[in-house]
Computed example of a mutant assay.
Amino acid sequence: MFAKYYEQIESIMLDLALVCLFVLMIFAVHDVLKKNDVPLIGKVVAYGVLGLGAMGFVAKGIIQLIWQSNGVSG
Rank of each mutant, 00 (worst) to 15 (best):
L24Q: 12
F57P: 00
V45P: 13
F27M: 07
V49I: 14
F57W: 04
I66V: 15
L24A: 15
I12A: 04
V72G: 09
F57T: 00
V29H: 01
L52I: 04
L65I: 12
F27T: 13
A59N: 01
A17I: 05
V19S: 12
G51A: 07
I63Q: 06
D31E: 07
K4Q: 12
L18S: 04
H30M: 11
A17Q: 07
K35A: 02
W67L: 15
W67R: 12
S73N: 15
L33P: 05
H30G: 12
E7L: 05
I63H: 10
I63F: 04
Y5R: 15
D37T: 11
M13D: 13
I12K: 05
I41V: 14
K34Y: 04
A46C: 08
A59M: 09
L33S: 04
F22P: 00
A28V: 14
Y5K: 11
G42E: 00
Q8K: 13
K43N: 13
D37A: 10
M1Q: 03
Y5I: 15
Y5S: 15
K34S: 15
L14P: 11
S69N: 00
I63M: 10
A46T: 05
Y6P: 03
V49E: 04
G71A: 08
G48F: 00
S73Q: 15
A3M: 11
Y6W: 14
N36T: 13
M55L: 14
S73Y: 12
D37Q: 06
D37V: 06
L18C: 06
I41E: 05
W67N: 12
E7C: 10
V29F: 02
G53L: 07
V49R: 07
Y47H: 00
M13S: 09
K35F: 01
Y47I: 05
M1I: 07
G56N: 05
D31V: 08
V32D: 06
V44Q: 07
I62T: 02
A17K: 09
V44A: 13
K35T: 02
M13K: 11
I66N: 00
K4L: 13
M25C: 08
M55A: 15
G71S: 03
A46E: 01
K35C: 08
V58M: 13
V38R: 00
Q8M: 08
K4A: 11
F22T: 01
I63Y: 07
N70G: 07
L50H: 01
K4F: 10
M1A: 13
G51L: 01
V23F: 02
K43G: 09
A54W: 01
K34G: 09
E10D: 13
K4T: 13
E10L: 15
L33Q: 03
M25P: 00
A28F: 07
G74D: 08
G48T: 03
D31Y: 08
D37I: 03
I12T: 12
Q64Y: 10
V72W: 14
S73T: 11
I63N: 11
K43D: 06
N36W: 07
M25Q: 11
F57V: 00
V44N: 07
L65P: 03
G53A: 04
D15R: 08
